[in-house]
Design a protein around this nucleic acid. Sequence first.
DNA 1: ATGGTAGCAGAGCTA
Length: 257
Amino acid sequence: MKVVTWNVNSIHARLDNVLNWVEANDPDILLLQETKVVDQEFPIDDFGDLGYDCVFTGERSYNGVAICAKDEIHEVKKNLPGDGPEAQKRLIAGRIGQLRVASVYVPNGQALDSDKYPFKLEWLARLRAYLPELTRPDQPFLISGDYNIAPADLDVWDTKAMVGSTHVSPPERAALAALQEFGLVDAFRLLEPNKRQYSWWDYRAGCFQRDVGLRIDLHLVSQALVPRVRRVTIDTQARAEEKASDHAPVILELSDA
DNA sequence: ATGGTAGCAGAGCTA
C-alpha cells in the first residue's frame, strides 16, 4: 500500500502536475496540504476520473487539506476541537479500511518575533491534545503532512544559516517531540538514520538547484504500523518539473496488515 | 544580494 503526503501549493495551479503524478505513481491514499480552495471548488471530478474518493476542508487563498483514496473514506473529522467556521483549515482525518489517517498542515510561524509563532506552538499543543480522540497508540494510524518543522539538524541544509529562524527552534522541535511521544515515529528517519534529504526548497534564489532545503514533510506512523514500513521515498523529480510545487511528494510504502 | 519566486487576487500577504 502506498500513502503519499504532498503540499501542492494550490490544487488549482497544480492540477495537471498532481493528476499526472498520481496516474504515474498510483498511490492508494493521497494526503494533500495547501489546496487553497473552498470546498465547493475542490476538483472532485478530476480525482473521480482517476478512481479516487476525496474529502477536504479548505478556504480561499490559504491553507486547506484533503484526503483522496481509492477505497471509501469513513469517520471523517475536520479541523481541531473548538475551531469555529472561521478557523484556518489545517487538519482532516478519516479511516480507510482499518487504517486511520490524517493530513496536517502545521502553521508556518513566519518568524520568532511574529504573532504567528506563538499561534504555531499553540496549534501544535492543541493537535497533541486531540491525538487521543483520533486514535489509540495500538491502532494502525498515520498523521502526515507539512509540519513546518525540521526534526533535527540533519534535516536542514545549513544550521548556521537557520539560527534565529522558525522551523528549527527548540520550542518547535519540542512540540514535534511531544506529538511523537504519543507513540508516533518519523518513518523516513526510521529507515534512513543518517540520510540527508529534503522535501521543501524555496522557489527563490535557485534553492532547489543548489539543494538548499529542509525536510519538513513527514509521515508520522503509530507503533502498530512501524513493522509494516517498507520504504519511504521523497520524489525530488516532481520538484524539478515545470510549474512544480515547492514541496516534493513523500511516498510511504506499507506492507499488508 | 535584508534579495530572491510563486500563488492568490488584483495590493499586499503568505510562504
